[in-house]
Amino acid sequence: MLLPTHLIVLGASAGGMPALTHLMGQLPATLPAAVLVVQHLAPDSSGEALAARLAAHSALTCQLATHLAPLRAGHVYLAPPDRHMLVKENRVLVTRGPRENNFRPSIDALFRSAAVAYGPNVVGVVLTGMLHDGTAGLDFVKRCGGMAVVQDPHEAEFPSMPESALQSVAIDYVAPLNQMGALLAELVGAPAATPFLIPPDLQLEAAIAERVVGNTDEINSLGRQVPLTCPDCGGALWELPQGRVLRFRCHTGHSFTADSLLDRSRQSLEETLWVALRMMEERRNLLTSMASRGEGQWSVQQEERVEEIKAHINRLREFLLSGLNSADDIAAS
């Protein structure tokens, strides 16, 4: 079996499996590239069933990625559930490293390692999905000389991921799904490009991902520490200035675009407010019990405190139930 001249790296989330099966059916068996796919999956989902579904619609050899599997032209590798899929030289790495953009497997993690390994011979593709995973990944691909492709968001079942990429990265091609197979076959049918100078920061980040964790000296060389904490582990965050997409990461390995960090912090704050509501209701119940057993002035004071905390509870409950669309809603309240 031949080594691939190119890599096609595909990322999809919500609505991804129908889009992927349609796209796989368009790619020829003689494709000179290996295709690596990250589809966001539940940790307990069956990766084998999804690989079989892709195989049923494709002339390519489709398989669930295994650690150290050799890359082969005409083969499709699907990232296993709850595992990152990376590229190292001409092999696939499967790791359980820290989440990136709140996902494992992460599209960004795959795209970065592929871009570092294959440079200008990588085509990165973002399909339908919600939120922002894949945006920074396409920026990595572009910084290493590769090509960036997104599904036309007007036809994507969930357009958030293609739209996010279009807003932040110089995308080379925006294509409807039924034309994407021919486009990808044309792009990887060109002769392999000459070696490209890979940015040192991406080389270091790819090496950290392969080892699962880094250290503070390495992260200090990538960016500057900022007064923010990682929502996943509580550690310090560093702002990474390279590239067109603002990103943050901790020395443990969690990584976020600014948009995904904002969304994750909103979720954490909302969870904290629900806990605060529960504690306030428990305090109200305790004060009510104390007031019912008191006499005279003490009872009056307790009842006043109960009424005061009821007002706080009602305000907080109304705020939470009205829906939180962004962290700015919370800050403005």
Rank of each mutant, 00 (worst) to 15 (best):
V35K: 02
M180S: 09
L222E: 01
Q203T: 09
A29M: 00
C62I: 00
G145S: 10
R83S: 04
G124Q: 11
F319K: 12
I107R: 10
E281K: 05
A182Q: 15
A49T: 15
L7W: 10
Y173T: 07
V126L: 11
R91L: 11
D139F: 02
E163V: 03
V212G: 07
G223Y: 02
V226W: 09
L131F: 15
L316P: 01
G11F: 09
R112M: 05
L228V: 12
A109I: 10
A209L: 11
G137D: 09
A114P: 13
L286G: 07
A73Y: 01
R91G: 11
E210H: 03
G223D: 02
S13R: 08
H57N: 08
S160Y: 04
A33L: 05
L131R: 12
M280A: 05
Q301A: 14
Q242A: 06
G243Q: 00
V125I: 11
L64K: 01
S322I: 07
I309Q: 03
T257N: 12
S292P: 07
G74S: 00
P80Q: 02
L10C: 11
Q203E: 13
R305F: 11
L269K: 08
A291K: 12
Q302K: 13
E100I: 11
N121F: 10
C233E: 10
R96V: 10
A148N: 08
E163F: 00
D108M: 13
I219R: 05
E303C: 09
V188I: 01
E281M: 05
R283V: 08
L23C: 05
I208S: 01
I8P: 03
G74D: 00
M85Y: 04
H84L: 02
G223K: 01
R293E: 14
G134H: 10
M280E: 04
L86N: 03
W238F: 04
L127M: 07
V38W: 07
A311C: 03
M280Q: 06
A34T: 02
T128P: 03
S260W: 12
A209T: 04
R315H: 04
I309T: 06
S106W: 08
A114Q: 11
P176R: 15
N215E: 07
H154E: 13
G296R: 12
A19G: 09
V37S: 01
P98W: 09
Q225W: 09
N215K: 03
C233W: 12
A65T: 02
S299L: 09
L246Y: 07
D44N: 14
V35E: 01
I313D: 00
P162M: 02
L41G: 08
H75N: 05
Q167K: 07
H6D: 09
Q267F: 12
R284G: 07
L240R: 01
L202T: 04
R99P: 10
L177N: 04
T288M: 13
D328H: 13
R317A: 01
V38Q: 09
N101G: 13
H6M: 06
A165K: 02
D133K: 08
V125T: 11
G145N: 06
L177D: 04
I171A: 04
N215M: 06
L54P: 06
M180I: 10
T257L: 13
A276S: 09
L184P: 04
F140G: 03
L316C: 01
L60S: 00
E210Q: 06
I198R: 08
G137F: 08
A190Y: 06
H312W: 06
M130E: 12
A12K: 05
A185P: 01
S58F: 00
H132W: 13
Q167H: 05
